[in-house]
Structures are given as C-alpha cells and as structure tokens.
C-alpha cells in the first residue's frame, strides 16, 4: 500500500482547489448557455443576431443594433488607443532612460486600477457636455465612449506590447545597429517586426477588454437601440443591454438577456483564442 504523507495530502488539496475554480467557470458557462440557447433556438440564430428590433414586451428579440454598437465602440477605442499605446510601449522599451521607465510604466499601469465607474463619471461630467457644445449631437455618443474606452484599454495594450518588445533578443538590436542603422531604424526594421505577434495579441486583448466593458459604457453611450451611422449617434452595447434590463427582466426576456451573454461570450472567447494562438505561434 502506498504511504500517505503530508506531501501527497497537500498535493491533493491543491488539486481540489484548482479543480473547483475551473469547475465554477465551467458551471457558469453551462448555465449561460442553458439559459440563453432556448431563446436563440426559438427566434432562430440568424434572426436573433441580425434582427433590428428589440421589443422584450412583445417577445421580439433582435440584437443587431447592440452588436453594431459593441463593435463600433470597440473600433473607436482601438483607433484612439492603439497609436498611443504603440508609441508609448516603443518609447518605454527602446528609448526611455531607466528613471523615466521607472516612473512612467507604473503610472500607465495605474490607469488600469481606476474603477470604470470613475471613468464613466469623468466622461459624463466632462466629455459629454464638451461633445454636445462643441461638436454636435446630444453628447452621449460612440465618440465619447470611444475616447474613454481608448484610455481605459491603454494600459492593457501598452504593457503587453512593452513585454513583447523587451522579449526581443538584444542581438536583434545590435545586429541592426552594427549594420549602420540608427536607433529608430533598428526599432522599425528589426525590433518591432520581431515583436509584431506580441503586439497584435496585445491589441486583440485590448479589443476584448473594450467589448466587455460595461459601466463606463452605460454612462456615456446613450443606450439608444439604433445601429450607429455617425460617431455622434448614441448606442447600446451587448454588455450594457444586459446590465440595463436585468433588474426587471423575467421569463423569456430574462432568457434573451442570457442569450445576449452567449453572443458576448462567443465574441470574447474568439478574441482570446485568436490572441493566444498568435502568441503561441510567435513562441515557435
């Protein structure tokens, strides 16, 4: 008989704790799908995701406006944040001095620690009136939301692409420099291409964050059920749809919200799988 030692007991306990956390995740997934799928089947998958009308009281469930809203805001956030995040990570990884790096990097990472409701609050009190007064529309808009989300995903994209850039072997830099490249040329031709898969993965993870964000979006986006045609149009996203209506939804309405969650789940899952595949390909 195998001797039972403290070692094996600790191993078993750790295994159980690890399994239970994964188990919880698994159960949540099963629950979302179990609740959401019936409505999707009843409405028809195509009708559900391409339907233009969302009228829960009449049991009409179409989420195209929210899908469009989520993607519009995500795209806007990327347009705002990717250039800043890239410049920032390249500067920090390649050009910044030690002192600069020690000050700026934690400062950017601190941005990730600000609660999203605070971002939303700043958006509502500063950005929304500004857009209303100086640009047009009523202020609650894709534009405002993109700007705020752009700042919110900045730390994610910056720190992951920074890590990717720092992981490029010194020999790449020296190789390019020894060929008579300037610092910037070496970065452009040798370092950034070598880190490109990591940078792309960073952007995709940033997209996932932007699509999943809820609180700030509810506060700034205006939440109208329309497909946005201009950056000044108000929108409702998949996440805010769930958060706005879950308080009073019941029956098939509640199930339709879970179905919205299923779509969101699939989108974010796809983005994450894509990101990890790109990262893995880079490792090989």
């Amino acid at each position: 008989m195998k001797k039972i030692t403290g070692e094996t007991i600790i191993g078993k306990i750790l295994l159980m704790i690890a399994l239970s956390s994964i188990g919880a995740l698994f159960l949540i997934t099963v629950f979302i799908f179990a609740e959401g799928l019936p409505v999707i089947f009843k409405t028809g998958f195509a009708a559900f995701i391409t339907g233009m009308k969302w009228k829960p009281t009449r049991e009409i469930f179409g989420i195209l406006p929210m899908i469009a809203g989520s993607f519009a805001i995500m795209a806007g956030a990327m347009i705002v944040s990717v250039p800043f995040a890239l410049c920032c990570s390249i500067y920090l990884a390649e050009f910044a001095g030690d002192l600069m790096r020690r000050v700026v990097k934690p400062a950017i990472e601190l941005l990730a620690g600000i609660p999203s409701v605070v971002y939303g609050f700043i958006g509502v009190t500063v950005l929304v009136p500004f857009i209303k007064n100086y640009i047009g529309g009523n202020g609650f808009s894709v534009l405002g939301c993109s700007l705020v989300l752009g700042v919110m995903v900045l730390p994610t994209i910056t720190s992951i692409s920074y890590d990717a850039l720092r992981a490029v072997p010194v020999s790449y830099r020296e190789g390019a420099l020894a060929l008579g490249a300037t610092r910037w040329q070496a970065v452009k031709m040798a370092v950034v291409p070598a880190a490109s898969s990591g940078i792309i993965a960073a952007v995709i993870l940033g997209m996932g964050r932007a699509i999943g964000e809820t609180m700030a979006v509810i506060m700034i986006a205006g939440n109208s059920l329309i497909v946005p045609l201009s950056p000044l149009d108000p929108v409702r996203t998949l996440t805010s749809n769930i958060a706005l209506e879950m308080g009073y939804a019941s029956g098939s309405h509640r199930q339709a919200l879970f179905a919205t969650g299923v779509v969101l789940f699939i989108i974010i899952m796809a983005l994450n799988v894509l990101a990890s595949r790109i990262i893995n390909r880079a490792v090989k």
Binding site: P169, A178, P193
Partner: peptide
C-alpha cells in the same frame, strides 16, 4: 561591418 557569434538574421 560586424558578424556575431550567433547568426542574427533580421525577421525579413
């Protein structure tokens, strides 16, 4: 021009 111990080719 310099050639290193570990052959460093650019990712091109």
């Amino acid at each position: 021009g310099m050639v290193f111990a570990r052959p460093v080719v650019l990712p091109l």
